[in-house]
Design a binder for these strands. Structure first.
Length: 227
DNA sequence: TGCCAGGCCGGGT
DNA sequence: ACCCGGCATGGC
């Protein structure tokens, strides 16, 4: 338990590392590359990360396409539009009043610290940026890590409900493990590789959509069966 | 038809 | 420090 991973040419040599890599291999074999994030620009990824909180991605697509159609998918536009109008545009994503406020809070941070320019963020160190994102009301750990990984291309592992269920059902963590513990496990025992983390999380979500990381029932054909 | 979806916050113990 | 209700639409 107190063993630390040993990095050998970027590949940790440790039972937990092998287990996590084994899961990755099985998922990749079963599903293939997922080509995430489904979004055109870093800014769109950030917006999508907020909109998809506890929400089906299909609904988020409608909301984003709405924003695009009305020319609202930019920091300036979202800064200008009144809260109520924004809420109406993102209605299909659910929790639209809540999320309109969260988008506004994110945009406010963008203007306060980066003059509204997303490009300015690329200079900021990852841990500083993560703390900054988490300080925005409405951005929690998963949303922050999604932005870090998929918009800003930092090796920050994203943990979600599917990840928890998958690990619990296969007895890799105990029920009371929290977000940061699980994130730390992946990041301590896997190489800090953006492409790996990108694909890994996307594959877990795919697993959840298709099969046995759903709440119920457990799928007998799970590619992770018999780990 | 009811359950679920790529969370997070705030108030009450 | 936990626990829990609220937030809301659309798909299967």
């Amino acid at each position: 338990m107190n063993l630390r991973p040993v990095n050998r040419e970027g590949i940790p040599d440790h039972p937990v590392s092998r287990q996590l890599l084994d899961i990755y291999e099985r998922l990749f074999s079963a599903f293939g590359p997922q080509h995430w994030w489904p979004g055109d620009t870093p800014f769109e990824v950030c917006v999508g990360a907020i909109l998809t909180q506890n929400t089906n991605w299909k609904n988020v697509e409608k909301a984003i396409s709405n924003l695009k159609k009305h020319g609202l998918l930019s920091p300036v536009a979202l800064n200008e539009i009144p809260l109520e109008n924004l809420a109406a545009r993102i209605r299909p994503a659910g929790y639209y009043n809540l999320k309109a406020g969260r988008l506004k809070a994110f945009i406010s941070m963008l203007f306060e610290h980066f003059d509204g320019k997303l490009e300015s963020i690329f200079d900021v160190k990852t841990d500083v940026l993560r703390t900054l994102l988490l300080s925005v009301k409405g951005i929690g750990p998963e949303t922050a890590d999604s932005m870090l990984l998929y918009a800003f291309e930092r090796p920050s592992f994203v943990v979600d409900a599917y990840t928890m269920r998958m690990l619990i059902r296969h007895d890799l963590i105990d029920e009371e493990a929290d977000y940061d513990q699980v994130r730390d496990m992946f990041m301590d025992y896997l190489p800090r590789d953006v492409r790996l983390y990108n694909e890994y999380h996307a594959l877990i979500v795919r697993l959840g959509k298709e099969l046995c990381a759903r709440r119920s029932p457990r799928c007998p054909a799970c590619p992770l069966e018999g780990l």
